[in-house]
Lab assay of single mutants.
Amino acid sequence: FSITQFVRNLGLEHLMDIFEREQITLRVLVEMGHKELKEIGINAYGHREKLIKGVERLI
């Protein structure tokens, strides 16, 4: 299971460039909250919320 699959499953594949540029893996994403996601350029609250909720389902 990769970050690419995870992001695609959430319908947020347009954010993949950010994850690749910042070298974010699923392991790193698990540790990130709204503040960190915003810092790397994910400005939409809804997108950040989707990512965080998606990660919570993985754990």
Rank of each mutant, 00 (worst) to 15 (best):
F1N: 10
F1L: 15
F1S: 11
F1R: 05
F1H: 11
F1I: 14
S2W: 07
S2R: 07
S2G: 12
S2T: 15
S2I: 08
I3Y: 03
I3W: 05
I3C: 05
T4L: 15
T4R: 15
T4S: 13
T4K: 12
T4E: 15
T4V: 14
Q5P: 04
Q5A: 12
Q5G: 09
Q5V: 11
Q5I: 10
Q5T: 12
Q5Y: 09
F6V: 05
F6R: 00
F6A: 03
F6N: 00
F6M: 06
V7C: 11
V7P: 00
R8M: 12
R8T: 14
R8F: 09
R8Y: 14
R8N: 09
R8P: 01
R8I: 13
R8A: 13
N9A: 14
L10M: 08
L10K: 01
L10V: 07
G11S: 06
G11H: 09
G11K: 08
L12A: 02
L12Y: 02
E13H: 09
E13P: 09
E13A: 13
E13S: 13
E13G: 12
H14L: 11
L15H: 03
L15D: 00
M16N: 08
M16T: 10
M16I: 15
M16D: 05
D17G: 12
D17A: 13
D17T: 10
I18E: 01
F19M: 06
F19T: 01
F19G: 01
F19I: 07
F19C: 03
E20W: 10
E20L: 13
E20I: 14
E20F: 07
E20N: 14
E20V: 13
E20A: 10
E20T: 11
R21I: 06
R21K: 12
R21W: 05
R21L: 06
R21E: 06
R21P: 05
R21S: 07
E22N: 15
E22S: 09
E22M: 05
E22V: 03
Q23V: 06
Q23T: 08
I24D: 02
I24W: 05
I24M: 07
T25C: 06
T25Y: 03
T25E: 06
T25K: 05
L26F: 12
L26K: 02
L26H: 04
R27K: 13
R27L: 14
R27V: 09
R27N: 13
R27F: 08
V28D: 15
V28A: 12
L29M: 07
L29N: 00
L29W: 05
L29K: 02
L29Y: 03
L29T: 04
V30E: 08
V30L: 11
V30N: 06
E31T: 15
E31G: 15
E31F: 13
E31D: 13
M32V: 02
M32F: 07
M32C: 03
G33Q: 05
G33W: 02
G33E: 02
H34G: 02
H34Q: 04
K35T: 09
K35A: 10
K35R: 10
K35V: 08
K35F: 07
E36L: 01
E36Q: 08
E36T: 03
E36D: 08
L37F: 08
L37W: 05
K38F: 09
K38Y: 10
K38R: 09
K38C: 09
K38T: 11
E39R: 10
E39K: 12
E39C: 08
E39F: 08
I40V: 09
I40H: 04
I40F: 06
G41Y: 03
I42F: 04
I42R: 04
I42Y: 00
N43D: 15
N43A: 13
N43M: 14
A44L: 13
A44W: 10
A44V: 11
Y45G: 05
Y45F: 14
G46M: 12
G46Y: 13
G46P: 11
G46Q: 15
H47S: 14
H47W: 10
H47F: 07
H47M: 13
H47Q: 13
H47E: 15
H47R: 02
H47I: 15
R48V: 06
R48H: 02
E49D: 12
E49T: 08
K50R: 12
K50I: 14
K50L: 13
K50S: 09
K50P: 01
L51V: 08
L51W: 02
I52D: 00
I52P: 01
I52Q: 02
I52C: 06
I52L: 14
K53F: 06
K53W: 10
K53L: 10
K53D: 07
G54F: 05
G54T: 06
G54V: 06
V55E: 00
V55T: 06
V55N: 00
V55Y: 08
V55A: 13
V55Q: 01
E56F: 08
E56K: 15
E56C: 11
E56L: 11
E56M: 12
R57P: 04
R57D: 12
R57V: 10
R57G: 09
R57A: 15
R57K: 14
R57M: 14
R57N: 15
L58P: 02
I59S: 09
I59G: 08
I59H: 09
